[in-house]
Amino acid sequence: MAEIVIKNVAKSFGAFQALHALDMAIADQEFMVLLGASGCGKTTLLRIIAGLETPTQGEVWIGGRRVDHLPPRQRGISMVFQNYAVFPHLTVFENIAFGLRMQKMGQPEVERRVRRTAELMHIEQLLERYSGQLSGGQRQRVAVARALAMEPDVILMDEPLSNLDALLRLEMRAELKGVLAESKTTTIYVTHDQVEAMSLADRISVMNGGKIVQNDSPVEIYRNPAARFVGSFIGNPPMNFIPAKRTDNGRWAVAGLELDGPRTERELIEFAIRPEDVFPGEEGFVADVRVVEPLGAHTLVTCDVAGKPFRAVLESDRRVSPGETLKLMPAASRIRWFDLDTQTAIPA
């Protein structure tokens, strides 16, 4: 059992506040992804959990034990580094065995564990090689095998796929998910890649400016962003935002349309819709098409709505060309509203 609890953890580097008093709980065997742009503090949080960074304040608990004063090796964790950190002077076998040797484990058990994890990661034929003779993808596999060989309660991963090319990343992503689910470890995975986050996570913590903006299941994060930042960060392309002016109680004027919305006293709020949730028809936003990008299954159309760029994802069998004017109707159930001051979602 290794649930992880973060209590009131903050970290500053000199005058720079990297993390603002965070609280977080990760259940045993859960796959938690920390998602955010670079500099949002996600790697700092991971390194604090690993013990490679000391928090300025707060507590870290792993498996019911307070660990923030312990060195990394006493925390029952293992880690996969962004640049793999596969030791160049050791063979693949000795790299995978490194942690086991440090525990003074007997040679038969070391052999057994190294062979087993090497098979799991499909690198059993590379065991005698050095890291200089491996490709990036193979090094990545060694780094994961080294972490798994420890049979840890917790695996921490710091952007493990970011140095691989696109195709390899896709393949490794699926493989990692399978291997980690089987190993029954609690996983914390740091990435800036939202697709990676969505496809791997049981739960995603979206971070921005050293704070956790939303902590929820991937679908919930996508469908119901708790903050404007989440809507503008998640999704490719992200949500469209248009200012909304109050016309009546619960009625809002949005770029020439009058829509049902939240009953709030505010005069000006923001309307938001995902690009795939608008449909061309007889009525809707007047959209002047600027750029058309056919993507195969869909066509991405960038238009001007009320003088602002607006993106729509349309069926690819519909022919659209630049200069054309479309009427785009938002699907009522998919409309979200945001408060302009607090930048948070307003329940409809």
Partner: peptide, 24 residues
């Protein structure tokens, strides 16, 4: 990163010196 990896995988200060610094 090599030192951090060694630290996470259980190497003490002296072991990091012997297993990472000296060979590298």
């Amino acid at each position: 990163e090599y030192y951090e990896a060694a630290e996470v995988f259980g190497a003490s200060r002296w072991q990091r010196f012997r297993k990472v610094t000296l060979p590298m």
